[in-house]
Design a binder for these strands. Structure first.
Length: 294
DNA sequence: TGCCAGGGGTTCA
DNA sequence: TGAACCCCTGGC
């Protein structure tokens, strides 16, 4: 759902127009941990072993370090550019409360991110804060990933593969990467995937319910982290992850009383149906930026 | 300056 | 069901 799509493979620049695309809201709504805000307010983002720089110039979205091939093989899917967000917003606008959140977080898109890095990143997110999560993820990439390019005089590092991460000791994971008690969980998961014991590609064929059951088998993955992985790496857009922020927002704006997390997810699924995941992102951003319910 | 609470949850008892 | 958990930051 983009217009005026143009490629300049020599300069590695792709540009297009679309009705719903705001880099700040996309990256800072909490779904991704590997982005860097440049001095010119553009964002450089890394996913797996690819990176690009995103900016807005006039009516155009510019993707730098993105050839035609990169666009179709990676970024079109990553930025969810085949989805019509105006249609989603229209479907969700039936609810006045949600309407405010939709307007506030205009241009949010749900990213389709690399599976392995999403799993590890959200394991790190447990009982943690966003700046520290981003710091740990960056240290992991700089220490164990590969240099995949350079942008604005900075080296850009890939997220390490399961093989690369499985070779890291639990001690280094804690002491170098500052992940605390999550150290063993991360190394164990890397080993389970590297050894073939857990197949992160094959499980993408499963139903939502079965996929969640599988993901929760991973150490460090509970109900909330599994839902984030499903929404941000497995395209399960009806998933409604309930964290402390969403809990507060839903209680304050919708349910008007203290409610169990599982019941909140059920409530959201009934209200927002197949678009629950999108609603969640708008509500999370709206709630956190405005400290709603706190 | 120094102490303390609390954080995008999960695990273990 | 509830306490414990690494580390770090912000508030007092």
């Amino acid at each position: 759902m983009v217009d005026c799509l143009e490629f300049d493979d020599e300069l590695k620049i792709t540009k297009f127009k679309t009705s719903s695309f705001n880099p700040t809201h996309i990256f800072e709504c909490g779904q991704a941990f590997r982005w860097y805000k440049e001095e010119d307010n553009s964002y450089t983002t890394v996913d797996g072993d690819k990176f690009c720089n995103v900016s807005i110039v006039g009516d155009y979205i510019y993707l730098k370090n993105c050839t035609k091939k990169d666009y179709y093989e990676k970024w079109e899917n990553y930025f969810d550019l085949k989805t019509d967000y105006s249609e989603i917003k229209e479907k969700l606008s039936f609810n006045d409360t949600l309407k405010n959140a939709l307007e506030y977080g205009y241009g949010i898109r749900i990213l389709n991110q690399d599976k392995f890095s999403t799993i590890i990143s959200f394991i790190i997110s447990a009982n943690n804060q966003i700046p520290r999560i981003m710091k740990s993820v960056n240290i992991i990439c700089e220490n164990y990933g590969n240099i995949i390019g350079e942008f604005n005089d900075r080296n850009i590092y890939s997220f390490p593969s399961p093989e690369q991460l499985s070779k890291v000791s639990v001690e280094d994971m804690r002491e170098i990467c500052r992940v605390g008690f999550r150290d063993k969980r991360i190394i164990d998961v890397a080993n389970m995937i590297q050894s073939g014991q857990f197949d992160i590609e094959k499980i993408s064929e499963l139903s939502n319910e079965d996929l969640r059951k599988e993901l929760i088998k991973l150490p460090g993955v509970g109900p909330k982290v599994s839902d984030c992985i499903m929404l941000f790496a497995y395209k399960r857009s009806s998933t409604f992850p309930v964290d402390v922020w969403i809990k507060r927002v839903m209680e304050y704006l919708f349910i008007k009383k203290e409610t169990d997390k599982k019941l909140i997810a059920n409530y959201a699924n009934e209200l927002f149906g197949e678009y629950a995941g999108y609603a969640q992102q708008y509500l999370f951003y709206y709630g956190r930026e405005n400290t709603i319910g706190k």
